[in-house]
Amino acid sequence: MPSFPRLFALALCLCIAAMARAEGLADVPGAADPPGLPRISGAAIIGYDQSGYDAFAYPTAKVGWDGAEAQVTVEGPHTRLLYVVPDDRAPLEVIRNYQAELTDQGYTPVYDCGGEACGPATPFTKFLYTMKLENSGQVSKMAFSLPRADLRYLVMRQPETGTTVSIYAAFESFDHFPQTADKVLVLLDLVEGKPMQQRMEIVTAAEMAGALGTEGRVKLYGILFDYDSARLKPDSDATLAEIVTLLGEDPALTVFVVGHTDMTGGYDYNLDLSRRRAAAVVTALTGRFGIAASRLEPAGVGPLAPVAENTTEEGRALNRRVELVKR
Rank of each mutant, 00 (worst) to 15 (best):
R6V: 10
F8Q: 08
A9V: 15
L12W: 04
L14E: 06
A17K: 13
M19W: 09
E23N: 15
G24C: 10
L25I: 00
P29H: 11
G30L: 12
G30V: 14
A32Q: 10
P35L: 05
P38N: 06
R39I: 14
R39M: 12
I45G: 10
D49T: 15
Y53A: 10
D54K: 12
A57D: 10
V63E: 00
G67I: 02
A68H: 12
A70V: 00
Q71Y: 03
V72C: 08
V74C: 02
P77W: 06
T79C: 01
D87C: 00
D88K: 03
V94H: 03
I95A: 11
E101C: 07
A117V: 07
C118M: 00
P120R: 04
A121D: 08
F127W: 02
L128W: 03
Y129F: 07
Y129L: 02
N135D: 12
G137W: 06
K141Y: 10
K141H: 06
M142R: 13
A143I: 05
F144P: 12
R148E: 14
R157A: 13
R157W: 01
Q158V: 04
Q158C: 15
T161N: 12
T163Q: 15
T164G: 08
I167D: 02
S173E: 13
F174A: 13
K183F: 07
L185V: 11
L187T: 13
D189A: 07
L212R: 03
T214Q: 09
E215D: 13
D228Q: 09
K233L: 15
P234K: 04
D237I: 15
P251V: 15
V257P: 05
T261F: 00
M263K: 13
Y267R: 07
D272L: 12
L273Q: 01
R277T: 02
A278I: 00
V281H: 04
T283C: 01
R295D: 03
V301P: 00
A305H: 01
P306L: 04
E314M: 12
